[in-house]
């Protein structure tokens, strides 16, 4: 009976700690996906502005639809603020939309707020250059995130189970 309880406790410990490890590994992959989604969104925004000459509110919504995920929610929210006309310029609207989502990373926030200050203020060619700069900045972040994910995903996937196993052995 005691052995059975100990075994059950051990399995639970290994399972819980393995799950924690998998969650940490997933967070690295999620960061990669989110940066990829932001790059897609900004590329779509660049197309809407350069070729479609679409008004910014509508362009942000369409860019969000193209990327999906977190950028879609942020851009939709920024477009609403922009069209309401009460939150100030594009930079302020984007900052407010990003701040409403605490999960966003500093790198994205910085790149987008800097871009937001220039969005909609100049001709299409200039806008394309500014969006291109933001995309390159996010691509740099994505390269770092890729490296981090490649290094850490496999480690965290197994380290959780290993630590759980070690803890179980120690307790037994």
């Amino acid at each position: 009976m005691t052995l059975a309880v100990k075994l059950a406790g051990g399995v639970l410990t290994v399972g819980a700690s393995g799950l924690l490890g998998l969650m940490v590994a997933e967070s690295y992959r999620a960061r990669e996906r989110e940066l990829a989604a932001w790059i897609t969104a900004l590329t779509a925004l660049q197309t809407e502005i350069s070729f479609g000459h679409t008004r910014l509110g509508q362009a942000m919504r369409r860019a969000g639809l193209a990327s999906g995920g977190a950028p879609a929610r942020v851009l939709e929210s920024a477009a609403e603020l922009l069209e309401a006309g009460e939150a100030g310029g594009v930079g302020e609207c984007l900052a407010a939309a990003l701040c409403a989502r605490p999960g966003e990373h500093r790198d994205e926030i910085d790149a987008l707020v800097v871009l937001g200050r220039r969005l909609g203020t100049s001709d299409a060619a200039d806008q394309a250059r500014h969006i291109g700069l933001a995309i390159r900045r996010l691509e740099g972040c994505r390269a770092k995130a890729d490296d981090a994910a490649a290094r850490n995903c496999r480690v965290w996937s197994s380290i959780g189970f290993l630590l759980g196993g070690m803890l179980t052995l120690a307790l037994l």
Binding site: H53, R55, L56, A59, V90, L119, G120, D123, Q127
Partner: peptide, 17 residues
């Protein structure tokens, strides 16, 4: 003034060349 420009151009100067 900035707000007036923003409202008139709808923050889309590129679309109003």
């Amino acid at each position: 003034w900035s707000a007036a420009v923003r409202l008139v151009t709808q923050c889309s100067v590129y679309a109003l060349e």
